[in-house]
Design a protein around this nucleic acid. Structure first.
Lengths: 348, 348
DNA sequence: CTGAAAGCGCTTACAG
DNA sequence: CTGAAAGCGCTTACAG
């Protein structure tokens, strides 16, 4: 049924129907309610494409996942973030289209195609890693975008972002482990999100150094961003871990889980022989035992704010927000938790 | 830029542009290529809403998640399924809109709204649990739908589906454990996907009975569909598990992971003291140690077929497909793997 | 406050 | 093979 037909059915004009269903102040309250009720009764809704064509608004936003993103199952932090975004956008009555970087055949990339065909009103981008061409595209089409989570390599001015402060997170991990001089310090990291990994490393270094324990290059271990890879990485380094007590800062919870598995395999006690702090705090981090001590990324703040920001951008209420949100240390079972630790006093 | 402007720019009519970009046989190969190249060069793409309005095709499908679905993080099997679907639809150049059951305020449910506003061409439904009203809606709007994964309670005729054969999966688990008379048999299940859980139970019963070991009512344990709940459930039943060797068939891998955690906590050896077979085979099942022995749900077959089926439905190539796809037993570390087990010969 | 009419940017039947 | 024109179903400036 079209709005013209529906209008005829209830004996008003198409204009009035449109105004009523769009909550225009021009139609009196009583009449609007009546029309709404009728619409509900006969199941009438405005055709979204005709509406979008006229208004240049689609009622859907895109979420752009990073290039290295493989799947929800593999990158649990992004899956978690997605969950939160989906939940949040629901309040705005907006639908979500998930977009990956991959390009289809020789055509435009999905991202480019979706912008050019105008399928969404704006984008939530889970990592700042757009190319120059893509930035121009955003500029040309004036697509509202909010970047969140990982800062990536190129932080552009004039763009809205709410990033997790990875350097600070690393610093906290370093400073916590700095309170345990008898533990040898390691850092296990990845290539996939290199710039962010660098920031975590820098912070970790700074934290450790502030406690007088520098980090050797040979104490930085690389693996891929998966549970198995972290597991294998630890097994390969079994000698170092059995020789002395070790404190491991892991790039993410995913690695943390792999490390726990490996320690168990090697018969190393957590946290007595091996302490672990990871980052993210995905739901899985406290579902498995021992529960991971980790740097909680403040998704509860980041997601609602970025969604609101994006909606404001769509409504052309401009305003630049650029913030780094600090992760919060959560001590669970993979650390030796000393209540008298100097860091806890500093944070309090 | 509109197609009219673009046409003017390159000196042909709007009709020709439209035909070229839609691969109409009416425009000669050479000309088409030229127009395509020009379009790429200046970054022209047809406005999707104008196109959809004219053709009644949107180029996006919806994935409807079940009522009890909470998040990708919580229900890893559905997340995995989603990953596979996303991957597959990419071949068709289709975009995906994720739809949840929840209704927004006093309005239509998301599902209903998306159909009535015609935002998608069809739906992939991850569980057959639609109400009568929803079935009428599909009928009225002739929305192509393919149901997959869980059969739910009401299996409607005249609808396309590709379900996992849960009863068969349970049967296989029962028959495998039937080969271990010295293990006490348990079944840990959930309320969330009750009908499917019932099918798994029936099959498990049938499998066990075929080996002469009936399943007692008191050997059916309930918990919620989460790692922690399964963990707690086992801890609560610690007495039964320490008394005798136990073989546990778990509703899903998620429960299986919780069970492993609990057994470790209780100091019970897997698989010597406790054997576990779960179902799904999510990626996590073989990432954690010990790796779960499980009934692999044939997603590799189910997803591509359901996507193709949906695309055919959208193209109005009718044809009813209703199939139950059998899970496959995968023995890993949580079972005692006897190569001479009679079931393996039967399956070979 | 209400309705008739133009126009959003496409596709396609129609005429050439 | 090509183009002019109608129409997909809305919204909104305009006239009343």
């Amino acid at each position: 049924m079209t709005s013209r037909e529906f209008a005829k059915l209830i004996g008003v004009s198409q204009s009035t129907v449109s105004r009523a269903l769009n909550n225009s102040p021009l139609v009196p309250e009583e009449k609007r309610k009546l029309i709404l009720a009728k619409a509900r009764e006969v199941g009438f809704e405005l055709n979204s494409h005709a509406k979008s064509l006229r208004t240049q608004r689609t009622g859907t936003i895109g979420i752009l996942f990073p290039k290295h993103f493989v799947s929800m199952s593999a990158n649990m932090m992004l899956a978690h973030l997605y969950d939160c975004i989906q939940n949040e956008m629901h309040h705005y009555n907006y639908d979500i289209m998930v977009v990956y970087y991959e390009s289809t055949s020789e055509d435009f990339s999905s991202f480019e195609r979706i912008i050019r065909t105008r399928k969404v009103d704006g984008f939530l981008v889970l990592r700042m890693e757009l190319s120059h061409a893509e930035m121009c595209l955003i500029e040309e089409y004036q697509v509202p975008c909010v970047f969140l989570m990982n800062a990536g390599s190129k932080i552009r001015p004039q763009l809205n972002y709410l990033f997790s402060d990875s350097e600070y997170g690393g610093y906290i991990a370093g400073r916590y482990f700095g309170g345990f001089p008898d533990y040898h310090k390691l850092f296990i990291t990845v290539h996939e999100e290199l710039e962010d990994a660098e920031r975590r490393l820098e912070g970790y270094r700074r934290g450790l150094e502030s406690c007088g324990c520098p980090l050797e290059e040979s104490d930085i271990l690389f693996c891929r961003l998966s549970i198995e890879d972290a597991y294998n990485c630890i097994l390969q380094n079994r000698d170092r871990l059995s020789r002395q007590k070790t404190a491991i800062f892991a790039y993410s919870d995913t690695l943390g889980v792999g490390i726990i598995n490996a320690c168990r395999e090697l018969g190393l006690c957590i946290p007595e022989q091996v302490q672990i702090i990871s980052m993210d705090d995905i739901p899985l981090a406290q579902q498995l035992h021992p529960r991971l001590s980790t740097l909680h990324i403040n998704v509860e703040e980041m997601v609602p704010r970025s969604c609101r920001l994006l909606m404001e951008g769509i409504d052309r209420k401009e305003g630049l927000v650029q913030e780094w949100i600090r992760p919060r240390l959560i001590l669970r079972d993979t650390t030796v938790n000393r209540e008298d630790h100097f860091l806890l006093k500093e944070l309090a």
